[in-house]
Lab assay of single mutants.
Amino acid sequence: DWREIAKLAEEALKKQQPVTVNGQTFNDPNEIKKLLETAQKAI
């Protein structure tokens, strides 16, 4: 669910920690931002 992904990505950016989505881990803040943008577009 994109809403859940957006929430996870936002928290990861705030806490500056990696986030795992669908078994894929994102460590890079730039990648997390991209993930968040993608999720927000999909909602």
Rank of each mutant, 00 (worst) to 15 (best):
L36G: 02
E11V: 05
K15Q: 12
K7S: 10
E10G: 06
A42V: 11
N27Y: 15
W2S: 03
T20D: 04
E4T: 12
R3T: 14
D28M: 03
N30C: 10
A6N: 02
L8I: 11
K14W: 09
K7C: 08
L36Y: 07
A9T: 05
V19C: 06
L13K: 01
E4F: 09
N30Y: 14
L8S: 05
A9H: 01
Q24A: 05
D1P: 08
D1C: 10
E37H: 06
E11P: 00
L13I: 10
R3W: 15
A6L: 15
K34L: 13
P18Q: 07
A6R: 11
T20Y: 10
Q40W: 11
L36I: 07
N27M: 13
G23K: 03
K34I: 12
A12V: 00
E31R: 03
K33P: 00
W2D: 03
I5C: 03
D28Q: 06
I5D: 00
Q40G: 04
N27V: 15
K7F: 13
A9S: 04
N22I: 04
A42G: 06
Q24P: 00
L8Q: 08
K14S: 10
K34Y: 07
E10V: 08
P29Y: 12
E37R: 07
N22Y: 06
T38K: 12
N22M: 15
V19E: 00
Q17G: 10
E31I: 10
L35F: 03
T38A: 08
A9L: 15
A42P: 03
A6H: 07
R3M: 13
P18H: 08
Q17I: 14
K33L: 14
T38G: 06
L13W: 03
Q40N: 14
A42M: 15
A39E: 01
V21M: 06
K34G: 06
G23C: 05
L36R: 02
E4I: 10
A12S: 05
L36C: 02
W2L: 04
K34N: 10
D1M: 14
E11D: 11
R3S: 13
K7Q: 12
E10P: 00
T25W: 09
T25A: 06
A9V: 10
K15F: 13
K15P: 01
L13A: 02
E31D: 14
L13S: 02
N30W: 15
E37S: 06
G23A: 04
A39Y: 03
A12L: 02
N27F: 14
N22L: 13
N30A: 14
A39Q: 02
E11A: 09
G23R: 04
Q24H: 12
A12H: 02
L8W: 08
R3Y: 15
V21Y: 09
A9P: 00
D28E: 10
K14N: 13
E31Y: 07
Q17C: 04
T25G: 02
I43L: 10
E11Y: 05
K33D: 03
K41Q: 11
I32E: 01
E10H: 06
R3D: 09
P18G: 12
A39M: 05
I32D: 00
K14V: 13
L13H: 03
I32H: 00
V21T: 03
Q24T: 11
P29K: 09
I32V: 07
V21S: 02
F26E: 02
E11S: 07
A6W: 12
A42I: 14
A42D: 03
W2M: 04
E31W: 08
R3H: 15
L13N: 02
A6V: 14
I43Q: 06
K41R: 12
A6C: 11
Q24G: 04
W2V: 03
D28A: 05
D1A: 10
E31S: 09
K34D: 09
Q40V: 13
I5M: 05
A6M: 15
L35Y: 01
Q24M: 15
Q40E: 09
K15N: 15
V21C: 04
V21L: 12
L8P: 00
N30I: 13
A9W: 04
K14T: 12
T20H: 09
Q17V: 12
A12F: 02
A6D: 01
T38H: 12
N22E: 05
I43W: 03
R3I: 14
N22Q: 08
K14G: 08
I5K: 01
L36T: 01
E37G: 04
D1W: 15
I43H: 04
L35G: 00
R3F: 15
N22W: 13
K14H: 13
T38N: 10
D28Y: 15
Q16Y: 09
L35A: 02
E10Q: 11
F26G: 00
E31P: 00
L35I: 09
L35Q: 01
L13M: 07
E31L: 08
K33V: 11
Q24N: 09
Q40A: 07
V21W: 10
A39H: 02
K14P: 01
K41A: 14
E31G: 04
P18D: 06
A39C: 04
T25L: 10
Q40L: 15
A39W: 03
K7Y: 13
K7H: 10
D1G: 14
E11I: 08
K15V: 07
Q40T: 11
N27R: 15
I5H: 01
K15W: 13
V21E: 00
P29S: 07
K33F: 09
P18W: 06
A9Y: 07
V19G: 01
Q16D: 11
K34R: 10
L8E: 05
A39D: 02
E4H: 08
A6G: 04
K14E: 10
K41P: 02
K34P: 00
L36H: 03
K15I: 08
Q24F: 13
A42L: 13
A9G: 02
I5N: 01
K34S: 11
E4N: 08
E10T: 11
V19S: 02
Q16M: 13
L13D: 01
D1R: 15
N30M: 11
N30H: 14
K15T: 13
E37Y: 07
K34A: 11
R3C: 14
A9I: 13
P29W: 09
W2G: 02
T38D: 10
P29R: 12
L8Y: 04
D28T: 15
Q24Y: 11
